[in-house]
């Protein structure tokens, strides 16, 4: 089973450009530490808000690619409704060359509205834009010379997009946040699915079944229907210590969401942990990730390792994840590794 981390480079209270610079330095350093420890994946997701440092994940990933050797790099996610798939394919083809075949793309519809007005799209088209763009992106990877005609961008005929990725088939993962139709689409397209789960793996059981049913009904090889899950994560030394250390930061982080505008109530936090939010000692995190594997059959888990946290806290959590969680999960899943998790690179 593969393990990874992702981040959006959220800034907390200090939103100065200096703070953003420090955050980006830290992300590059943390990715190097993850690489040295043998972690499989490092992922960055785009936001376009004053409280996030990552708006251009491909640029930060390029810096990481140049200073790491084995770790695979992906997004978490690219808001595909508001980027031109041609541009995206060129950027990630370039990144795949720089990283010598360690690049993937994870695309989704996004959770915030900013990118629509920034890049000149109507948010009411978010679904249609995504649907068109994901099909074009897959076509540009699989059959770049094929002509294209769509609703939202000019037609493509006899065009060149390059450089081509180093990998023969750059993996494109579909990010899904819980909408059943998105799981059906990922399955019908026959692409791997990245499912973010904030309230534990149980809520994903039906969605995963839907993904696999849609995929096999559409005639795709079940082995191509790979599955990753992700969610917020904090690893502390002890169970109770982890809960206490993380709570104030997480509560502030979630106040971005209208449900928790005044911060996350403590009883809701405790309930989320009871439902499977990954906050706890290394052993609890191991058990939690293994529950994702048992309930959903995941090939990969990617945790957001720093939501709302100051740098030192994120470093501490990451270190425990790398030194105490990673080796145990690797050992526990090595013998039962599904064949489908082999990645050509």
């Amino acid at each position: 089973m593969e393990l990874g981390v992702y981040s959006f480079g959220d800034l907390g209270h200090d939103r100065t450009s200096k703070a953003a610079g420090r955050r980006l330095d830290a992300l590059i350093r943390q990715a190097q530490a993850a690489d040295e420890a043998g972690l499989d994946m490092f992922a960055l997701g785009e936001h376009h808000r004053p409280d996030f440092a990552v708006s251009a994940p491909e640029v930060v990933l390029a810096a990481i690619a140049a200073t790491t050797r084995r770790i695979r790099l992906t997004t978490s996610v690219i808001v595909l409704s508001t980027v031109d798939p041609v541009r995206l394919m060129e950027q990630f083809g370039t990144l795949d060359q720089i990283s010598h075949g360690r690049t993937e793309i994870t695309v989704g519809r996004g959770a915030f509205p900013e990118s629509y007005s920034l890049f000149g799209y109507d948010i009411r088209d978010y679904e249609a834009l995504f649907d068109e763009n994901v099909r074009l992106l897959i076509q540009l990877r699989d059959d770049p010379a094929k002509p294209w005609q769509g609703r939202f961008r000019s037609a493509l005929r006899d065009v060149h997009t390059g450089p081509r990725p180093a990998q023969q088939k750059l993996p494109i993962w579909i990010g899904v946040g819980g909408t059943p139709q998105s799981a059906v689409r990922a399955g019908m397209l026959g692409q791997p699915m990245f499912l973010s789960l904030f309230a534990g793996p149980r809520s994903g059981v039906r969605l995963v079944e839907l993904y696999r049913r849609a995929g096999t009904q559409a005639g795709h090889d079940p082995a191509s229907l790979r599955l990753a899950t992700g969610g917020h994560m904090y690893v502390g030394r002890t169970s109770q210590g982890a809960r206490e250390e993380f709570y104030p930061h997480y509560s502030h982080y979630l106040s971005l969401h209208p449900s928790f505008a005044g911060g996350m109530p403590r009883h809701v936090y405790d309930q989320w942990i009871a439902n499977g939010l990954l906050v706890g000692s290394p052993q609890q995190i191991i058990d939690g990730i293994m529950t994702h594997r048992e309930l959903l059959g995941v090939d990969r888990f990617v945790g957001q390792f720093d939501p709302g946290m100051p740098e030192s806290l994120a470093d501490g959590s990451l270190e425990l994840y790398l030194t105490e969680v990673l080796p145990v999960i690797k050992a526990e899943t090595r013998t039962s590794e599904p064949a489908a998790t082999e990645v050509a690179s």
Binding site: V184, L210, A214, Q217
Partner: peptide, 8 residues
């Protein structure tokens, strides 16, 4: 896809 969504 609605039929499949409802079935599952």
């Amino acid at each position: 896809q609605t039929a499949l969504v409802v079935e599952v």
